[in-house]
Design a binder for these strands. Structure first.
Lengths: 195, 195
DNA sequence: TATTTTGGGTGAACGCATTCACCGAATGAG
DNA sequence: CTCATTCGGTGAATGCGTTCACCCAAAATA
């Protein structure tokens, strides 16, 4: 709302320029194959400037992955079809797998190979969605109420991340989507309410 | 058996010297805080020599973690107490957690943050032990035979690694042992044979 | 308008893992 | 014993991520 000074505008443009140049080069040649210097040369900025906007080379990927929330809000949540809550949750993780696959094995390996607290950021939208679904499932007595929605959310994400980590170890050489489905089905079953 | 030449003997001693110096320094100051140069100075060898024996700095930790097999064979397997196979498996993962805790959070973070195929090495003794237990459990009809022992082994390890990865993300700030137990109990339950 | 302050921008310098061309003594063939 | 080969060992050089002391024009202040 407040008018931007020319300097602030410049700053935003510089950051975007660096971000986009980085992504396009990384996509083209792979994360390890490109250097900060190459990025900066192509983006027409100095190396120092890169570090003014990003904590590290890895930070570029972290920024990328942050967009998962947006993706889930707009593409995933509105399109869940199953009506039984356990099935919806499985579907949710299908989409989670899809998102990771589409991000690309190279990027995912890089992300899982750097301690980033991205995955465990409290209150992250993506997690909140799941917590809400579990809550709703408990209300409908489809999911056990013997554990809190937060606990179950964490539990499920730990398993899902375990699988993605494994997928990275295998260089993305199997079908993550299928495997995720196969795996989450019985896991979610653990929390199904029994009469 | 074959007699070693003085050169071969020398080589073994050099490698050990490097390995032990590395570990002691890493334990004292932490992985990132020590340099190859420091290690080599203290061990009385050249930098080039380090790389003659180890692929990378990380390789030291990989060597360390390889000893898990030995530990499992001698310390864990002979001391499993529970008689029902599902319970034995849970106990097995308790020990797995213990081993990881005793390895130290610093080392574990480093290990999980480097693509090492250590964890998924086919025919790894540690994995084989579990596969055998599952096989035995199937024979006693305590574990479902609808999946192969290999499949179940992989499944369980993916979950366990997911938890350890999470523990690393949280800087080892919770009790891994407890959490592992709590988590594997229902997961192993998934594969319990029902009449 | 004259001044101070601020913050985007710079690139040389640094630290450290990794590589490489090159020893020289132990080994083994003749 | 003699010569060629092998291989453990060397440390300077390389490459790259990251830091730092320093600019300078825009913005704020007077």
């Amino acid at each position: 709302m407040t008018k931007l000074t020319s300097r602030q505008l410049q700053a935003i443009q510089t950051k975007n320029k660096i971000y986009e140049t980085s992504l396009s080069l990384m996509e083209l040649h792979g994360y390890d194959q490109i250097t900060i210097e190459q990025i900066c040369r192509k983006a027409g900025v100095s190396v120092g400037s890169f570090y003014n906007y990003f904590k590290s080379k890895n930070d570029i990927l972290i920024e990328l992955y942050s967009r998962a929330d947006e993706y889930f809000e707009q593409e995933v949540m509105p399109h869940l079809t199953e009506t039984s809550m356990p099935e919806r949750i499985v579907e949710y993780f299908d989409s989670y797998a899809n998102f990771n696959v589409s991000t690309g094995i190279g990027t995912m390996k890089q992300l899982y190979n750097s301690n980033n607290s991205l995955f465990i950021h409290e209150g992250r939208l993506m997690q909140v969605f799941l917590t809400q679904m579990i809550s709703a499932g408990q209300a409908k007595r489809e999911i056990t109420a013997s554990q809190s929605p937060e606990y179950i959310t964490e539990f499920l994400f730990i398993v899902a991340r375990g699988l993605i980590y494994d997928w990275c170890l295998h260089n993305g050489e199997y079908n993550l989507r299928e495997r995720m489905h196969e795996m989450m089905l019985p896991i979610v079953g653990v929390f199904r309410e029994v009469e």
